[in-house]
Computed example of a mutant assay.
Amino acid sequence: MNLNQNDWWSQFLQDPNGVILDVRTEEENAALRIPESINIDFYKGQGFVYKVDELDKSKNYYVYCLAGGRSAQACNVMKQLGFENVYNLLGGISEWQGPVEE
């Protein structure tokens, strides 16, 4: 499900089962990230699938990338792997107005 940043962030803050997932590269993540996010690089292909498949499927995942494209694809992959609740951040971190770590 695609959410604008206000809905994405407010829903995450009220979600005790929420996990923020950054699907950008490690270099992108090291430069700027949303606090408390975990990083699994979507560009790792099958490696991404293996890592994501190890995550707890009972959690709710709030997924972001730079502009929203990779995270949308990652959400589709996660749905195929059996994740029920995945939320894509529209516009990605490039349009993000919330807290960040540099």
Rank of each mutant, 00 (worst) to 15 (best):
N4Y: 12
D7S: 08
D7M: 11
D7P: 00
W8N: 06
W9L: 15
S10L: 14
F12I: 06
L13M: 10
L13C: 03
Q14I: 00
Q14S: 14
V19E: 04
L21P: 08
D22V: 05
V23G: 02
R24F: 04
R24G: 01
T25F: 03
T25Q: 13
E28G: 09
E28F: 06
N29H: 14
A31I: 12
A31L: 14
P35C: 08
P35G: 07
P35T: 06
S37Q: 05
N39E: 11
N39I: 08
N39M: 10
I40E: 04
D41A: 12
F42M: 09
Q46R: 07
G47F: 07
F48H: 03
V49L: 12
Y50I: 12
K51I: 00
V52D: 03
V52W: 06
E54P: 00
K57P: 10
K57T: 11
S58V: 09
K59S: 13
Y61S: 03
Y62T: 00
Y62H: 06
Y64S: 04
Y64D: 01
L66H: 14
L66K: 14
G68C: 11
G68H: 07
S71L: 05
S71H: 07
Q73C: 01
M78Q: 04
K79A: 14
K79M: 00
L81M: 15
G82L: 05
F83G: 02
E84D: 15
N85I: 07
Y87E: 03
Y87T: 00
Y87N: 04
L89P: 03
L89S: 03
L89K: 01
L89W: 06
L90T: 13
G91V: 09
I93W: 04
E95N: 15
G98Q: 07
V100N: 05
E101H: 03
E102C: 00
